[in-house]
Nucleic acid binder design. Structure first.
Lengths: 257, 257
DNA sequence: ACAAAAGTGTTGCCGATACACCCATGA
DNA sequence: TCATGGGTGTATCGGCAACACTTTTGT
């Protein structure tokens, strides 16, 4: 029984040393082809998709655990990662009959096993640059995929709700904090940045007003280069001024969309 | 040994049936004499003060646990209570040597006891009407007191940090959500409401502009009565229009201070 | 030369702020 | 009657939204 062995390995290597009752789940946002996307996993022999998540080691802070999960999944470090809410409903895991799913696959765990414990989950969301990510599959994961946030599949537990909440928080965040440093490549054009905003906010914005506003924040540096090759007038390339960017992250933009 | 007995009783009655590694802590705000205050407890034989907090029962949601803690402490129900952040630093409990404090008092618990487990805490803040609160002391609590938020005492663990974060969140919240229904008595005057805002924001506001703005939200109903007895012109009394109030809580005020 | 995209400037409106006057009440 | 606080109105300013024209580039 392949699965049983895998679970046992995971159990002994990791689950024996982690805290029960607590997990972290990461909603990883990326931006590609004018779509805001979320990175989801599908575990072996389970139909529903999952957010990348994990347990805490006893000596690990919540933030560190989320960071580790993100690193394990995307290979990326120093990514924008923010705690946004903790999900603690009593029945948050009931919409997926985890036990019988595993049992159907021939995986038999004690009812008292840590995986079945009543667990609260601390939600984090991450902003990552789509092109830099190539998730690694571990022995429990069958596939990964970027999903358009407007069209996510059925997910285990309350992961659909967690994703929805993350998106709401991101939208609200956009009004006050600069966004984009981690979602876009190093150099980008003003229309590209605008598309990102329009996609997240799900509304169109006026080109000229957008530019004035975003430049007013002082977090962008215009380069001499232009994006060549495309039809029509070639747009300037911009880069985030990281000093200003991080300062703005602390103080907020004091504007509203 | 009085203390030992008390702890044993608590242990058997409650701690044996709660989840390890997770707690909730409540920052309870009240408003009195133009001061924004926080309700703190001091446990027997411990110098530092504490936020009212507790553990989760296995069948209890996070929100319900916070609600229960609040009810146990203040006797109030249906109070504004909002989760604001989860504190999970590895060393968040290290600034208080809980073990030796208890040991000094002759209370001896296993090192592996649930109270010493590494624990993350989900923070909630509550807005309550000062005059309605008269906390009950349980067998572990020596005293309770309302502290001016500008002058809180040294607290155990990371409770000072939790309180500071709660205050920051409350200030930010004030810009977008209506506040006051739970902090003020049923009837209040415009100057009283303004004082509340000024106290939370820690800045003075223009009387006339404040009134225009707050009335513009449409969450207040002016009564025929006036506040009598005070010197000078008698101010109108207002009441929150609860329908509008709760609608505004959902949609936000779409304004900024 | 023309279509489509990108760069830039101007106007007007609305909401927030700053500010002044009148009224009620107790001492 | 006067000091103090409360009620209300107006004028201005700034930021944002609405909007138009020019420039570049590939076809």
């Amino acid at each position: 029984m392949d699965h049983k062995i895998q679970v046992k390995r995971l159990d002994e290597q990791k689950l024996g040393t982690v805290l029960p009752h607590v997990s972290v789940d990461c909603v990883i946002f990326g931006f590609h082809e004018n779509q805001l996307r979320v990175l989801l996993l599908r575990l072996k022999n389970i139909e529903e998709w999952s957010l990348p998540g994990g347990r805490l080691f006893p000596d690990e802070s919540l933030d560190d655990a989320a960071d580790r999960v993100l690193r394990e999944r995307t290979g990326l470090e120093n990514i924008f990662l923010k705690q946004f809410y903790t999900f603690g409903d009593r029945n948050r895991m009931d919409n997926t009959d985890f036990h019988s799913i595993l049992a159907r696959q021939g995986i038999h765990l004690d009812v008292g096993h840590i995986l079945f414990d009543r667990t609260i989950s601390v939600g984090y969301y991450a902003l990552v640059e789509f092109s830099q990510v190539s998730p690694a599959l571990d022995e429990l994961t069958e596939e990964w995929r970027w999903w358009d946030v407007r069209d996510v599949p059925a997910m285990i537990f309350d992961h659909n709700a967690i994703t929805t909440t993350a998106l709401e928080v991101l939208r609200r965040q956009l009004r006050f904090d600069p966004v984009g440093l981690n979602l876009l490549p190093e150099k980008f054009t003003m229309p590209e940045l605008q598309k990102l905003y329009e996609t997240i906010l799900n509304k169109t914005l006026d080109r000229r007003n957008f530019q004035k506003r975003i430049l007013g924040y002082g977090i962008l540096t215009r380069l001499e280069e232009r994006r060549v090759g495309g039809a029509h007038k070639s747009p300037y390339l911009y880069r985030f001024n990281e000093d200003q960017y991080f300062k703005a992250l602390e103080t907020g933009l004091e504007h509203e969309w």
